[in-house]
Amino acid sequence: MGDKATLETLLSAAVFLIPIAVLFTLILLLSRRRRRSAQSPAAQPREPSAEPPQAEPLHALSPDQHAQTPPPAPVESVETILEKIETALVRGEKTALSGLYYELAAGHARLGKAEARMAALRSAAGYGALHGPPGAHAAARLALGEAAHSAGDLTTACEQWQMARTAYLQAGEAEHHARIEKRMRENGCPTDWVLTDF
């Protein structure tokens, strides 16, 4: 009977002591973790530096960040873009032409060739109007409108913006459509024109 009473006493003591031991262990682990994090260099306050913070190298990004960060597009030469245009024409890939001419306009802009840029933008707008896609057509019309506006030709700017607005609507890009409509209103352009593409 004495052994049974001793066993019951030990069991009730264990039931009482086990939660206390677990709690004590958790407190000990948390205090160690806090000490380690306080001693780590990342937790130390940094001295303000005169240099701006640098972007993390691409290899340091998480896989989710990799998916959100598009790689920089290589800049192609005007000659390379002209070759692509010739290839598209030979193959009959007419929907690619608007975007290619838009790239050609950017290439001419990098070289400071304003007239060649404008000719490429007009080709981009024309092919976009005829063969699409509407987004490429809209981008070309918008660039033509901005160029006309910069040159002080508000009538042409309004016409080009109107066509860009319509093309963005066709492309389903409501945000761009609204932005161009706002730009037109700010410059006093009529927003109820019905234009034919030219």
Rank of each mutant, 00 (worst) to 15 (best):
R46N: 07
H177I: 01
I18K: 01
R185W: 06
A88K: 05
L29S: 05
P52F: 05
R91T: 10
V22Y: 05
T156Q: 13
R122L: 09
P133E: 05
P72T: 07
E83H: 15
L154T: 13
P71Y: 04
S49H: 11
L154F: 05
V194T: 15
G92S: 08
T80S: 15
L10I: 14
T196A: 14
R36A: 12
R46A: 14
G126Y: 06
E175T: 13
G152K: 01
L121Y: 01
H176D: 11
F198V: 08
A174Q: 13
D3L: 13
K94H: 08
I18C: 08
P53H: 07
A147P: 04
D192R: 03
S49M: 11
A96Y: 07
Y101R: 05
Q68P: 04
A164P: 00
A171N: 08
G126N: 15
H149L: 13
Q160L: 00
T87I: 09
A138I: 07
Q68R: 15
G2T: 12
A125F: 00
V75N: 05
R36S: 06
M163L: 15
P52E: 07
L7I: 09
E56I: 05
T9N: 09
L11P: 02
G128R: 04
T156C: 01
R185Q: 15
L130F: 01
T191V: 10
P190Q: 00
E83K: 15
A13D: 11
A88L: 03
R179H: 06
A178E: 13
P134E: 03
L195M: 07
G145C: 05
L58T: 11
A157L: 00
A143M: 06
P190W: 00
K182W: 04
P63M: 07
E76M: 13
F24L: 13
L144Y: 02
M1I: 09
S12G: 02
L97P: 04
Y127M: 06
F16H: 09
H149P: 00
T156L: 09
L7K: 14
P133H: 03
L26K: 11
L130N: 10
R33C: 10
V15H: 12
P63K: 10
P57A: 11
A43L: 03
A125L: 06
P190S: 08
P41V: 07
P41H: 00
H149N: 11
A157N: 00
Q54A: 13
Q65K: 11
S150V: 09
E83R: 14
L23Y: 11
P190V: 00
L154D: 04
L61S: 09
A136K: 05
A174P: 04
Q54G: 08
A124D: 03
L17G: 09
L104T: 07
E159D: 14
D153T: 02
A38T: 11
L100D: 03
C158S: 06
P134H: 01
L82V: 05
L28T: 08
R183N: 07
P48N: 07
C158I: 02
S37K: 11
A151P: 03
R46S: 12
K84R: 15
W161M: 00
R117I: 05
T156P: 01
P41D: 10
A164L: 01
E8A: 13
A136T: 04
